[in-house]
């Protein structure tokens, strides 16, 4: 999953411009020449410089690499689903942690991923996921005293 250097170059240019523009609105401390805006502005200038080098370097290459290159193996629909399932699992964790509680959401996320990666055996995935979820809950909530939300299981695990 490779983006060409010119794509990164454009992102760096846009990022650099945005940083410099935002830094111009930072307040100046009376009597001081160097304040909140100085370092972000220098970083912005650095991004502009690097962005330009990346774009020029990439445009000079022959043959010019494609804007986006996907490994043939990684480009198969099933492999793409594997990759997408990882951020989807994290998003599910973020959205469902408080409503469902840690153990159910961890079971769901880990079980779902094992099932997806193994292409089957849902019961074994579920048993493994429950074991992981309970172990992690014990480690973090009981041993390290992290207040992991109990959610649906508040009456059982509380």
């Amino acid at each position: 999953m490779v983006f060409a250097d010119r794509v990164w170059g454009v992102l760096a240019l846009l990022g650099g411009l945005a940083i410099i523009f935002a830094a111009r609105s930072f307040p100046v401390i009376p009597g001081q020449a160097y304040g909140s805006a100085l370092v972000p502005t220098l970083i912005g200038v650095g991004f502009l410089l690097c962005g330009t080098i990346l774009i020029v370097g990439d445009l000079r290459r022959s043959p010019r690499p494609p804007v986006f290159h996907l490994d043939p193996e990684a480009g198969s629909p099933s492999r793409l689903l594997d990759v997408l399932s990882v951020p989807a699992a994290v998003l599910a964790f973020i959205l469902l942690l408080h409503p469902l509680g840690f153990v159910p959401v961890a079971t769901l996320v880990v079980g779902g991923l094992i099932w997806r990666f193994r292409r089957g055996r849902p019961l074994s995935a579920l048993i493994t996921a429950v074991t992981f979820a309970l172990f992690t809950d014990w480690l973090f909530r009981h041993l390290l005293l992290v207040p992991l939300p109990l959610g649906l299981l508040s009456s059982w695990l509380g």
């Binding site: 990882v86 961890a106 992981f132």
Partner: peptide
């Protein structure tokens, strides 16, 4: 690895939360 990676991901999420 199909089991290990989801477990690592779970540790990542709990770690970032904690």
């Amino acid at each position: 690895r199909e089991v290990l990676m989801p477990a690592i991901l779970l540790l990542c999420m709990v770690g970032a939360f904690a």
